[in-house]
Design a protein around this nucleic acid. Sequence first.
DNA 1: GTTGACGTTGACGTTCGCGTAAAGATCGGG
DNA 2: CCCGATCTTTACGCGAACGTCAACGTCAAC
Lengths: 159, 159
Amino acid sequence: MPDTATTVSAADSRTYSISELAREFGVTPRALRFYEDKDMLHPARDGMMRVYRNRDRARLKVILQCKRVGLPLADIREILDLYGMDRNERAQKREALKKFRQQVDTLHQQRDDIDAALEELHNGISWLESQLAIIGPASDEAESVAAYEQVAKAHMDDA
Amino acid sequence: MPDTATTVSAADSRTYSISELAREFGVTPRALRFYEDKDMLHPARDGMMRVYRNRDRARLKVILQCKRVGLPLADIREILDLYGMDRNERAQKREALKKFRQQVDTLHQQRDDIDAALEELHNGISWLESQLAIIGPASDEAESVAAYEQVAKAHMDDA
DNA sequence: GTTGACGTTGACGTTCGCGTAAAGATCGGG
DNA sequence: CCCGATCTTTACGCGAACGTCAACGTCAAC
């Protein structure tokens, strides 16, 4: 089964046009140019046109993985920079590891924020539900506004 | 204990200057003006100066609560608009309830995204750690780059 | 009188990650 | 020879939620 899969597997030394690579990863050519502008990719050139080799393809993969993980492009760039330093890749990896761990922390933080928000939301929801449960007693009286003021105050003062 | 607490409790009919109210809620005056510009607050005027009464204070409280919950200002504005309609507050509350439930869904979605990101991060971290565990065999050989390429490929192809 | 704290209204700047023209080069096909 | 597809660069737009001037008025205090 070598021939049929040739185009897909065989981690090869192909070259890619910008839109080829873009399609493969489900991004737009604009994104690739943008990453290049941010010094995250450095494709070769054939005349004017960008020529992506598998080095660039690998870097793009890293970029997109890091993006999925929520890292800002600036941080991703630093990580990629470290990978280019060739010599002391241990320091590089330690740096990347550091950033990853930081990102774990911030993600945990964000998750806690979301959980807190969800709690507040559930409070608000059950309050609204209780309000709606009171089928509508003296709702046509103009004092309903003042009533809201009162209830809202009681509700919010402990929040 | 009525006198001492007079300034704090006694849900009163005070008036607030913009910076008073801002300080009380830990936001900047600019934010309050911004909310007003977005028709979320409608303070009275004494000449040029904004005069906030407890109605506005309550609305601000709602705004900040909704913000904490992650609602965009546009949605918060709609919720506040509904509260102003006086008559049919049941429809209003149902609308708010709807938005709250929607927000619950999006927050759950975001949490799942974060969890997925955390998983990927943990994978990346343990990969980096394993790389660092190999105390550093032929790291001075120039082939370390190619080695990275290979390992990275193996790592990323299943991701 | 003048200083300083507070208020006002514009209006442009910021951050992020691209999208979206605009205007042109280059290439193969019909 | 022109068409359409694909590539290039430059550059402005966007959306969210304000920040940060600028330039000015107003007030009590010293």
